[in-house]
Write a protein that binds this DNA or RNA. Structure first.
Lengths: 205, 205
DNA sequence: CCACTTATCTAACGAAAGGTAGGAAACTAA
DNA sequence: TTAGTTTCCTACCTTTCGTTAGATAAGTGG
């Protein structure tokens, strides 16, 4: 059977370029004109290869998770809870300030808030962030079982706490905070890790 | 002299409604149709009263800072660094999950990343966040001078650290995290406050 | 060479974006 | 009443949005 005309551009390279655009401008802020111009292809080529804008974003997001965001999975594989958190915090400090990429984190700034048309993308990103937090919770549960974290620690609370710091670092990076400054934040968080999980409620009225 | 036809809508009420829309959808995601529909006025009325979309956002942002975001200024007036941080963290937990408003923080999710047309709004929000952090740094400097924070503490580092946690809580809220869960994050951060500022560099290779 | 398949491009589509003209309506001052 | 001022609304503007026909080009299998 016939194989047809061969594609003249590299799909993965084009996807990487699309990722850069989405990362810098967000899902809504990235127009098809921005994308095609950066990717160096025409709109019909884009639609033929990637479906539509939403599918293109999802594919770019997958690529992000496996590439620049890969440090998260690496971190989860570390042998102790402390090593996991160290790798997450310093990995984030480096990833969100990598000079080869836009500052910040696609999963945070891709569609933190948006119009109705982008709602499903926003949901996708919320779900990815929640999944990452859930993975971390499971890792902490294991650490508790292994006696690596104090028995009685609440893994979900700890995972939320670390996730919040990571996301805060992403917002900081989007605002121009430098890698060195972010590393100091990581250091401070580590200096007090783990925050002794509480019997709750010694907070002020 | 003549006074002209009186305005039929309440400018401040309309601004509050616009604020809700920007808060929920972000600057880019909020269309003029969204805004006018929610505000209950027509486009010419909106333009006549507020200038254009960008000016409307800036006015809504001012209102946000003085209203739902007012806890920040209150916090800065507290007598000790610890009280400032307590008020900031618990104030943020409550503010970003106030059921009367969209979840999250306008200064974070209003335009964290965006297209070219919204660039100046993004800059404005970056600048506001930086100013808030700078105010906190000054407050910590005072606390150091008063012996309230350990001499040798780096006020800028501490301000960045707290800002990152606050922004992380805002992202969490945008993802659906509850007020109780955010309060636990605040509690954990407070339990380890202040993170002993470092002679730096005891981090792993 | 021919049929078939797939990629390429130009050019357009309808919808929605932000923004405005222009005239009728509602008020005050004289 | 009338002149002057300001707000109101309908209808429209231009531009850009995401998306797609439809024709042409470049390859493979017979």
């Amino acid at each position: 059977m016939a194989m047809g005309r061969p594609r003249e551009f590299d799909v993965d390279k084009a996807l990487d370029l699309a990722l850069q655009v989405f990362w810098r401008k967000g899902y809504e802020g990235a127009s098809m004109a921005d994308l095609t111009e950066t990717m160096g292809i025409t709109k019909p080529s884009l639609y033929s290869a990637f479906g539509n804008k939403e599918e293109l974003f999802r594919k770019a997001l997958d690529r992000y998770v496996d590439g620049p965001g890969g440090y998260v999975q690496v971190a989860l594989g570390k042998p102790t809870a402390r090593a996991v958190v160290e790798h997450l915090l310093y990995g984030a400090a480096d990833a969100v300030t990598d000079p080869d990429h836009p500052p910040g984190c696609l999963a945070v700034q891709g569609a933190l808030s948006c119009g109705d048309a982008a709602e499903s993308i926003k949901q996708e990103l919320m779900s990815r962030r929640a999944n990452g937090e859930e993975d971390l919770r499971k890792r902490f549960d294991r650490a508790i079982a292994e006696g690596d974290l104090r028995a009685g620690s609440d893994a979900a609370d700890l995972a939320r706490y670390i996730s919040a710091i990571l996301q805060g670092m992403a917002v900081q990076a989007a605002g121009g905070t430098s890698r060195e400054q972010l590393r100091k934040i990581a250091e401070m968080a580590l200096r007090t890790w783990p925050p002794t999980a509480s019997a709750a409620s010694d907070r002020p009225a």
